[in-house]
Design a protein around this nucleic acid. Sequence first.
DNA 1: TCGTATTTCGCGCTTCCA
DNA 2: TGGAAGCGCGAAATACGA
Lengths: 443, 443
Amino acid sequence: WRRRAFSSLNCSDLPPEQAPKKSSQETSTSACWPHQNAQRPERTGEHSPEAPGSARAKGVDTQTRSTKQAMENKDFVKLIEATGFGNVARELGLVDANNLLPAAYVQPPPTPKAPKAKASPPPPPPETPTAPKPPPVAIDPPARRPSSRGTRVSPRETRRSSRAEAPPSETKRRRTETPKVDADKRGLRHFSRRVCAKVEERGVTTYNEVADDLVQEFTSLRGNGASFDEKNIRRRVYDALNVLMAMGIISKEKKEIRWCGLPSKQESMREDARRRRDRAAVDVRRKRRHLQELLTQHASLQNLAKLNKRRGLEAKNSKDLMDEDGGDAEANATLALPFIVVATPASTTVRCEVTDDRREVFFDFSAPFEIRDDGDVLRGLGLHRGMPNIQRAPPKLPSLSEDDASEKPTPLKADAKVEEIRAAYRREQEEARRLAAAKAGAS
Amino acid sequence: WRRRAFSSLNCSDLPPEQAPKKSSQETSTSACWPHQNAQRPERTGEHSPEAPGSARAKGVDTQTRSTKQAMENKDFVKLIEATGFGNVARELGLVDANNLLPAAYVQPPPTPKAPKAKASPPPPPPETPTAPKPPPVAIDPPARRPSSRGTRVSPRETRRSSRAEAPPSETKRRRTETPKVDADKRGLRHFSRRVCAKVEERGVTTYNEVADDLVQEFTSLRGNGASFDEKNIRRRVYDALNVLMAMGIISKEKKEIRWCGLPSKQESMREDARRRRDRAAVDVRRKRRHLQELLTQHASLQNLAKLNKRRGLEAKNSKDLMDEDGGDAEANATLALPFIVVATPASTTVRCEVTDDRREVFFDFSAPFEIRDDGDVLRGLGLHRGMPNIQRAPPKLPSLSEDDASEKPTPLKADAKVEEIRAAYRREQEEARRLAAAKAGAS
DNA sequence: TCGTATTTCGCGCTTCCA
DNA sequence: TGGAAGCGCGAAATACGA
């Protein structure tokens, strides 16, 4: 057989109500070949030998059908079992516990009637089992939260003064009467649940809001009009809030109770905060470094200015006595800013070319070279020495593992001897003169 | 200036300790042009006019340096402020609150001494502030957990019997003496934290384990040997456990307290369970559908077998009387399985070609066609009718929002009249004969 | 049914705030 | 400094296991 012939169709030739509704899935299923075992699911080998042609139908009379059916059902159930669907079938109610097909196979289903109606009808619930949740708005403001104890005569107020004797209080009586009715609607367990839910619902709230709500809820829950245990509820709310607080599920700050939510959220928020903190720390470090740089620069310039001034004076003084090329001496004795230095090895050949308008200079080096700006040079001269080092104790951040005492630069010597500066300066001057140098006039 | 001249370098001509360590970042920074404002960070316009050439150095004498320095520092601090770094500098301790540079600029830093040593040295902690956590093993089994009240004389036992009078209890006295020392080491808040930690640490534990541990911890924490409030602690543990239980952070089952973990974990696990549950539900639905299919198939075959038997008998009986083409009548009266039907519109031209060995048949259709297997045909014949429909109440899953009562198929009629079956059969037979049909012999 | 485990419940002290 | 908010604390009631 070549059996790839297949396509969409029109079922108009079939009786309309029998036309199979061809969902794509059904189509592919019903198009399977029955005798190609592998393709039709679950038609196992045990079934195949009993297949259609050899079905053991006992008779054809419609009247005796039900009895025959019973037999066939047995076979059928056996088949189901063999196919591994027994459990499923039983579970689904397709066959009952006795491995019998339900009567629906033969008879129309009887008028549905509760099959498990027992003798004792359950008594109607003595109290409203789940009261309709009252709207959370303040219904009776004057009566609520009677400004704590003592200001108002409540049923509780008149109770046993010495709780050792005295007849069983109303509370006790009630509880003993209906021991189970609201067994899970009392006590710390229940109240903490309620409190938690309430705070979550409110987001930000106060003790009194929560307590009032719970009292309201509770009193309306028990149809009984008396606000029996308002005091108790209020007391319990404290307990619940405290534990919730300790768990970090809520937080309280000056009467303001705030829902902090699931620890997962907390965790992620903590993570986020940590990240931001770290980023900020890096930022501070960078800024500190930058500040240090600025300070260094400033100190260098300051020192250079001093140096220049002194050397200028010296040069001017000595010029009268023994100088040959006049005004240039003063200029040579001082260092003007800004400038850059281009440094190469001594062996390098440098070709220098200046444009006619003297606005551009071209250098051609035979070897690698290095450019230094005035800042570099001043630093190299040691003119920055004596700056306070700002790499001191970083501001104490909320405790973190890593410490910032990592790259504490070697503390600079407190001051630089003027002679050292001078020597360095001379050395550099030599260097600068020997190599290619360019100056831009200052001020 | 064309200033792209740059390359890697050798600093061999410079004094080695002055050779700037060129980290890539530093290089790019120090290579900036000072007079190209945009490139040197933070050298704002306010700074530029005071730039190097015009620095106001008051003198050069090293001896008077410190006083001059004070003036310059003022300028410098002003500069820092102008640059927007004032806050940072102050915060870093670079300048003090009076906007003065610290003495480090001039003098070597003095021997570091706590600058904020106050008058009253904090008294040594009267008790071990954080006790070394005792190993959790039982240290003193006989004395611990004295099998509840009454069996043992504890300091608490002798306390006020009627709390109205009686001298202030030891507890109270202690608390009043040291009001803040352990203010956060008492009370429900603290204990619930402890309890939670303990349960988490233990994973699975019992009330007594937790309580014993906490008592142990507490008594060892307060050097005071007396187990003052063992009873209270034990009482509080109940409270904490209850609330924790209500929050679902722990669970308790017959004295076995189990850590259920953060709600986040719970949430994910709940999510996971829900997913698995849904997957299983889909699985059940699919299996149920499949079972229904198998049942339909089985019923069809069963019914067909009956029908065949009866019609075969009828044909045999009537053959003797008035049949013309003998044995074929019986074969024609019955339907053998398996087979397939290829259906086309009446107007379709079908070309059929069979190979010599008769193992392959080729069809050529002039229009779309449809393939139906025996299952389809039997279903179309109505032979599956009367099968109980298994789409009954699905097994009650743990409460879920969605209901499965979505695609309840229209209940099939209880039984199929034999005449109907016969008519349908005949109709289909006609159709099958008129169209292309192929049979594979059965058994 | 008793003894223990657990929970309920509210008195009165402490702390906070105006 | 007095009143209100907050809550420590433990007696008593109840639940529970043997």
